[in-house]
Amino acid sequence: MSAKKSPEELKGIFEKYAAKEGDPNQLSKEELKLLLQTEFPSLLKGPSTLDELFEELDKNGDGEVSFEEFQVLVKKISQ
């Protein structure tokens, strides 16, 4: 996936994966893993990378990643 996506496209991608289980407005760690493996495969170099990335993105510590938290990752990789 190209990092150059419109905000609407990014929101659609986020919602597609977030709706798989639990809260449709939040990504669980498994949903984030699936999204990254599919859309940004070069970001995941191993299991520790996912854990570190999830911890970094989950700013409020609720165990899930909101769209706002996800946007931090998108901004970081599009620079």
Rank of each mutant, 00 (worst) to 15 (best):
T49I: 10
S78G: 01
A18P: 00
P47T: 15
L43T: 06
K59P: 14
L43W: 09
K76S: 04
L27Q: 00
L73D: 00
P7Q: 15
L32R: 00
K20W: 02
Q26P: 01
S48P: 12
L10T: 03
G46K: 11
S66E: 14
S6E: 03
F14V: 00
S78E: 15
G22F: 01
L50Q: 09
K76N: 02
S48T: 09
S6V: 02
S28A: 11
L57I: 15
T38K: 15
F54T: 13
L53D: 14
S42F: 07
G61S: 12
F70L: 03
L32Y: 02
L50P: 07
E68T: 10
E56A: 08
E30P: 13
K33I: 07
A18H: 02
G22L: 01
N25F: 13
E55Y: 14
A3K: 04
E52Y: 04
A19I: 10
S2N: 15
S66G: 13
E52I: 08
D23F: 06
S42N: 11
G12N: 11
L50S: 09
K20V: 06
K59C: 12
N60K: 04
P24E: 07
L43Q: 13
E9P: 02
G46Q: 11
F40L: 08
Q71E: 15
E31F: 04
D58N: 07
F70E: 00
F67T: 02
E39F: 01
K5V: 04
E55Q: 13
Q37T: 12
F40Y: 10
I77H: 03
P24T: 13
L32F: 08
E39N: 04
F14S: 00
V74D: 08
P41A: 15
G22N: 03
A3H: 07
E69C: 06
N60A: 15
E68I: 02
P47G: 09
F70V: 03
K75D: 07
S48Y: 12
S2E: 04
K75S: 09
F70A: 03
Q71D: 08
K45C: 06
A3G: 05
K16W: 03
L35K: 00
L10A: 05
F67V: 07
K75V: 06
S66D: 05
L10M: 14
L43V: 14
D23G: 05
L43I: 10
L50Y: 13
K75G: 10
L32I: 15
P7C: 10
Q79I: 01
K11S: 03
E8G: 07
E21Q: 09
L27R: 00
E69L: 11
F70M: 04
F54Q: 11
A3W: 02
Q26K: 07
K20M: 14
K11G: 03
S42H: 05
D51A: 09
E21H: 10
E9H: 05
S42L: 06
Q26H: 06
K75I: 03
L50K: 11
K45I: 06
G12E: 03
E8F: 06
E39T: 02
S78V: 00
A19N: 10
P47S: 15
V65D: 00
E21V: 07
L35T: 03
N25C: 10
L57V: 06
S2M: 15
F14G: 00
S48R: 13
K5H: 03
E69G: 14
E64K: 09
A18V: 04
I13M: 14
K20P: 09
G22W: 00
S28L: 02
D62Q: 08
L73F: 04
D58M: 09
M1D: 01
F67S: 05
F70Q: 00
T38W: 02
E56M: 08
E31Q: 15
I13Y: 06
L27G: 00
K45S: 13
E15H: 12
P41K: 12
D51V: 09
L73C: 15
D23M: 04
L36W: 06
G46A: 14
T49M: 05
T38R: 05
K4G: 02
G63W: 03
T49W: 06
S6K: 02
S2D: 15
F67E: 07
G63I: 04
D23R: 08
K33G: 13
L44Y: 13
L50R: 08
S42T: 15
L44A: 15
P47V: 15
L34F: 08
Q71P: 02
E52V: 09
E56Y: 07
Q37R: 11
E68H: 11
K76I: 04
Q79A: 12
L34Q: 10
E15M: 14
E30C: 10
L44F: 11
L35P: 00
K20S: 05
L36A: 05
L43R: 06
V74P: 02
K4A: 01
E69M: 13
L57H: 09
P7K: 07
E31G: 12
F40H: 08
L36H: 00
K5W: 00
A3D: 15
S78Q: 01
V72W: 04
L34W: 10
D23W: 02
S6F: 07
K59E: 11
F14Q: 00
E39I: 02
K33R: 11
G61M: 09
K33E: 09
E56D: 06
L10Y: 08
F67R: 03
Q26L: 12
K20Q: 14
K20H: 07
N60R: 12
G61C: 13
Q71F: 04
G63E: 15
A18Q: 02
E64S: 11
E9C: 03
K20E: 04
L44D: 13
N25E: 10
K33F: 10
S78I: 15
Q79E: 15
L73I: 10
S66Y: 05
S28P: 09
G61I: 10
I77A: 03
L57W: 13
A19Q: 13
D23I: 12
E31H: 10
N25K: 07
K75R: 06
S6T: 09
E69I: 07
S66L: 04
D62Y: 02
A18N: 01
A3F: 15
F67C: 07
V72G: 13
N25M: 05
Y17M: 03
Y17H: 06
E64M: 13
L10I: 08
L34I: 12
Q37K: 11
A19K: 14
E64C: 13
V74T: 13
D23N: 10
V74A: 12
L35R: 00
E15I: 15
N60V: 13
E21C: 12
D51L: 06
E21T: 05
E31K: 11
Y17D: 00
K45A: 01
L10C: 00
T38Y: 06
K11H: 03
P24L: 04
F40D: 05
L27D: 00
G12V: 13
K20N: 10
S78K: 05
D62I: 05
L10H: 03
G63R: 09
G63T: 07
G61F: 11
I13S: 01
Q79T: 15
E68M: 08
Q71N: 07
